[in-house]
Design a protein around this nucleic acid. Sequence first.
DNA 1: TCCCTCTTTCAAAGCGCTTTGAAACTATTT
DNA 2: AAATAGTTTCAAAGCGCTTTGAAAGAGGGA
Lengths: 361, 361
Amino acid sequence: MARGAVNLKRLSQVLGLSPTTVSRALNGFPEVNEKTRARVIEAANRLNYRPSASAASLATGKACAIGHVVPLAEHMMINPHFSDFMAGAGEVYAQFGYEMLIKVVAREDEADVYRDFASRSRVDGVVVHGPATNDPRIPLLNSLGLPFVVHGRCDDLASDYSWLDVNNRRAFRRATEFLFDMGHRRIALVNGIETMNFAGRRRRGYEDAHQARGVPLDAGLIFGADMVEPYGHRVAKKLLEGDNPPTAFLVASVLPAMGVIRAMGELGLKAGADISIIAFDDDLSFLQAPSEGGGRGIPFFTAMRSSIREAGRRAAEILLERIDAPANAPPRQELWEAEFVIGTTTGPLRETVGRHRVFPA
Amino acid sequence: MARGAVNLKRLSQVLGLSPTTVSRALNGFPEVNEKTRARVIEAANRLNYRPSASAASLATGKACAIGHVVPLAEHMMINPHFSDFMAGAGEVYAQFGYEMLIKVVAREDEADVYRDFASRSRVDGVVVHGPATNDPRIPLLNSLGLPFVVHGRCDDLASDYSWLDVNNRRAFRRATEFLFDMGHRRIALVNGIETMNFAGRRRRGYEDAHQARGVPLDAGLIFGADMVEPYGHRVAKKLLEGDNPPTAFLVASVLPAMGVIRAMGELGLKAGADISIIAFDDDLSFLQAPSEGGGRGIPFFTAMRSSIREAGRRAAEILLERIDAPANAPPRQELWEAEFVIGTTTGPLRETVGRHRVFPA
DNA sequence: TCCCTCTTTCAAAGCGCTTTGAAACTATTT
DNA sequence: AAATAGTTTCAAAGCGCTTTGAAAGAGGGA
């Protein structure tokens, strides 16, 4: 405690009341006279009284904090997708008087951190990021009795835990079919890392569409890696300079999609006219131009869009709800549909798509 | 505390020792027999004992947590620069057993949060992000007695507080002179928001170079906004389509620099050959291609480079050091020089830079 | 007036840890 | 054997809050 800060004892002395009454008055208990309560609140504000967090935690057993574990690894590092999610969650925490506790650790230490969170009662719950198939964290957290919510899902038999996810499979199926409808047949899939569960679903959606339309899959058009800008650039450059290039790209994030755009720029190709691109758009805040006059202009990318920030908000709400709910409450599971927005990066198939074409006059 | 978790009392009963001795044994006090200590540690591991965080905080007055306040506003939201910094800081915290506590609040509530942090002793120190000129947070934190370190500086008379900053002025002067040396005379400055202190310094560096070389400034070439991708795109498009376009761009971050690249691609211009670009590169992790074979390849952007993640690490170290240091210890101040790396986006001035040029064969 | 109920306040006992000051035990010296 | 010093352990008192169970005060009915 900062030196000289006023604590409950001192405040109650000043008021000529017992600590009990003061505590109750401030915490909204009904059995305290409204006149007394007003007096207490006034004095608390005047003396700038704030209850010690650790003392309150110790007494109540509640930490009023939510933990987020961030793997230190290269992939799934603190990336823009992640931090936008956090920003959304943080808003909700602040609103409900919770703290957000972030721990950056090597992946192999993640389980330890959860155990630590649970037994040291540092947090009341955690958000699980980037679930893999059959992620060991779910059974661990269940056995620890620590409330949690998963951003994403672990497998199709969404079993006994709460999650919030986007219907990635349907979104990618729909986007693929949209490109088919535009006449495209060779569509590159620039996917995220396939160990991440959501990437697998996206691929399945892409495959679903091919199967439904009877278009054969070409393994040479499917890629998976961290969703960073240079990845998109590298893949696009390689494909577009190679033989039999694709006429469209389906990209897992706007970051690699920007890389694809860059590669096309270098080759003199124009998005929409020469090559079509659809990106999954998490509505990342740092890519949005400050809205001039309110509404958003016509989007650049044709995209499957779902705000990851909004997902962060909702995940936080679900978690707080579960923390207050009885332990046997049924898990909450939400599947969101991505919005499909048409921007400037898609167009009908052109007859001749050569490489190093002269820029159209 | 999780139900059934073993606490100090239980552990000491099991061992047949007093809580005092067990606590001292685990905390490395010298006055405990090494044999006893070994026995205690073994039992603690076996029973999976972990001291309660809040109880320890309450008893010691130390929170073992560092606070970061993130304004909810549009600019200086959780952006990639910010989160890379956090990742670096988080590594250091984890290493020293500290927690990172993040609070997302509206800017006008920031002072309240600091007061709260201090009087509720939730954190032992804070990191101040994005200082403005004469930032009110510095006197506030000083008066609260809460240790802090500033990422950046508030004014040139770097007074009585600890900070870590990059020599932005020199970096931008040097980059501008580099472009002058290449023959460029009309150089656009795509700066960050000028209320941020660092943006002012960058502008001054740009102006220094002009003055030193006797090149007149053109206010029509200077811009300031949030460092997002569409900003660079918008400015570049406007300038390059206008009369008397610049031949080079000096950009405050790789994000808007990517926007500039995109605009150039749309106009059929090639970076380096047609237009030169130098960006300030914070070494953002999500823009780095995974290093194949260890070393980093030839960089795309010619850039002033300084790892913001490394800055996060160092800032955390400085803060932890200050927390342990006596209150009257002199502040720590570090000024880093940015590295200048030559990539593919700069080249000598071309005679004729038209617009909508045909892509070179 | 007395008794009963309802409202309002309080004293005291934790929550689980650290830390002070003292006690018990050992080893060394007189 | 007694005194001294050094080592090792402990009982007890907090840290600042919440919460239980009880006491005091107020109001109403007999």
